[in-house]
């Protein structure tokens, strides 16, 4: 009977799985790009670097902290008007991706800043001494030198997004986490809950293993 019930939910599982992938995919792709730019800006505007600008540095740092200290559930609701404008709806995985992206951008930006700070200042100085422009320094020094750290940051961000995407279910985002709450939690179906949790564990593990492998292969230190 239990097995049969689980089997009857198979289409729901597939749908939820697909929704999770949509949310993860959209928000991850967007937040990696925007987060990298923001993190780079934050890093390069710091003291002694090529875009030194204390005002820009402090303002962007403050804004990031404001967004990061807002609980995600609240951010989700606060961003509903923006979501409506951008996607024309507030329901579904694409709509949920808006707030996920905003949260992930600031999250990844801090990770980018941290891994850029790990790059040997002496190497940046050497590139400057040889007459490299800021863009050449970014492309030829910062990106390759910080690459393992940047990849690890993507891994951490992606895994956080898996967690956040479950919350996005509350406003109708759907996904595996949403399934766990609706069927497993509200309907007391421990078996459904278990299956979804196992699926989430597998997703997280796969992301971690792939991320670690890429980071390790790129690490020449």
């Amino acid at each position: 009977m239990g097995n049969q019930y689980l089997l009857s939910l198979w289409p729901d599982f597939l749908k939820a799985f697909w929704e999770t992938f949509q949310m993860l995919g959209i928000s991850l792709v967007l937040s990696i790009d925007a987060g990298f730019v923001l993190g780079l800006l934050l890093f390069a505007s710091d003291r002694g670097l090529f875009w030194e600008n204390r005002l820009l540095h402090n303002i962007s740092g403050f804004l990031i902290n404001v967004i990061r200290s807002t609980p995600f559930v609240i951010l989700l609701v606060l961003l509903l008007p923006l979501t409506q404008r951008l996607t024309g709806t507030t329901i579904g995985p694409v709509a949920a991706s808006v707030s996920l992206t905003v949260a992930a951008i600031v999250f990844y930006a801090r990770l980018v800043q941290a891994s850029l700070c790990e790059v040997d200042r002496g190497v940046i100085e050497a590139a400057t001494a040889f007459g490299a422009s800021p863009f050449q320094i970014i492309k030829e020094v910062l990106l390759p030198e910080a690459f393992p750290g940047l990849v690890r940051g993507v891994t951490v961000t992606a895994i956080s997004l898996v967690g956040y995407s479950a919350m996005a279910g509350i406003v109708g985002g759907g996904g595996v986490g949403d399934l766990a709450i609706r069927f497993g939690y509200y309907r007391y179906r421990t078996d459904v809950m278990l299956v979804t949790v196992v699926v989430l564990i597998i997703i997280v593990q796969v992301i971690q293993i792939i991320g670690d492998k890429i980071a390790r292969d790129a690490d020449k230190k």
Binding site: V123, A127, V141, P144
Partner: peptide, 14 residues
Amino acid sequence: IGMIFQQFNLIHTK
């Protein structure tokens, strides 16, 4: 103007 450094400052990933 060439420059060499005490800590070499080579790009590790190149």
